[in-house]
Nucleic acid binder design. Structure first.
Length: 293
DNA sequence: AACAGTGTCAACCGCTGCATT
DNA sequence: GAATGCAGCGGTTGACACTGT
């Protein structure tokens, strides 16, 4: 809801100038009532006649991003995150287009998610978030991880949400379906915590769809497991996205190609700027990495 | 408890494309 | 075809919340 404590433009209340900054409860109410009786659209007209001292733009934004009844609040589900990653790889920063495929989610929200979660990882890995290398990382590591989360979630829940998602996004959920089937030839293990590190999940379709995936160059399952253990870190409640380390990928049996061209400052692999600030490594992984040096 | 650093997200800004005149 | 106004989009900012020291 709108913050009532802050009112940066209160001085303009008296002089009739346009208000800016956070919306008040009164403004929200006014906007909702106006739209409920006049409908959406014609925002400049709305701004003039509603009594709000806001621009039409501001009214539109407030309605679409916050007040509209079907706007979903709360964290993005793994399904939604997966879809965002999938669609962004297709369309790039076409946030509104992506948002059209996530009912209840706004372009602003998706954009914020991308910038705060995804780009953060790209920055940490010193990769351009729009680069092919980073897209490859997303497809090879992050998306399988989300698929696993979806799988785990569906086994816990009644799976109604997942079924809804599958019905609406069959192209993405081809991955999920295959995750749930066994394919011995392309089994991989993806783990996020020390506990789940030992559990297997399968996503052959992901591999099939992404023939350039580094998994294809990985060889045996044992290699994969070792590799993946080095790439995942202890799950963090705050971030659904995965962190992966280029060093571990570029190590023995690791990534070749464009990703290998990216690098972190190896001299800083254990200093605060790379580790403490981001908490991407747990002790075991740090140790493992140190052994590889 | 206080402070600093970091993350999140609502809101603003500038630009573009489209419709209308 | 040019001018104008509007809606919408994507990038950016800033305030607040949260976390660590």
């Amino acid at each position: 809801m709108a913050s009532l404590s802050k009112c940066p433009s209160s001085s303009s209340d008296e002089d009739g100038e346009l208000r800016r900054g956070p919306w008040t409860l009164e403004e929200d109410t006014l906007l909702i009532h106006y739209i409920s009786s006049h409908g959406e659209g014609r925002w400049n007209l709305l701004a003039k006649h509603s009594g709000l001292r806001r621009t039409g733009k501001s009214c539109r934004l407030r309605w679409l991003n916050y007040l509209k009844p079907d706007v979903k609040r709360g964290n993005l589900t793994p399904q939604e995150q997966l879809l965002i990653l999938e669609l962004h790889s297709k369309w790039g920063n076409r946030w509104s287009k992506i948002a059209q495929h996530l009912p209840g989610r706004t372009d602003n929200e998706i954009k914020n998610y991308w910038r705060t979660r995804v780009q953060k990882q790209a920055r940490y890995l010193n990769i351009d978030s729009n680069s092919i290398a980073f897209q490859q990382l997303i497809r090879s590591f992050w998306m399988p991880r989300l698929l696993q989360k979806i799988q785990l979630g569906s086994s816990k829940d009644s799976a109604t949400n997942n079924q809804h998602f599958i019905n609406n996004h069959p192209q993405v959920c081809r991955h999920k379906e295959n995750v749930q089937t066994t394919d011995e030839t392309s089994q991989i293990s993806v783990a996020s915590s020390s506990e789940s590190m030992n559990s297997s999940s399968h996503m052959p379709q992901v591999l099939a769809e992404y023939p350039t995936s580094p998994f294809h160059a990985m060889g045996t399952n044992n290699d994969l497991n070792t590799f993946l253990k080095g790439c995942y870190y202890t799950d963090n409640i705050s971030y659904d996205m995965e962190a992966f380390t280029l060093e571990s990928m570029a190590g023995p049996g690791g990534l070749e190609g464009p990703i290998g061209g990216c690098h972190l400052d190896k001299n800083n692999w254990l200093n605060g700027s790379n580790l403490g600030d981001h908490s991407l490594w747990n002790m075991d992984e740090s140790w493992q990495f140190s052994q590889e040096q």
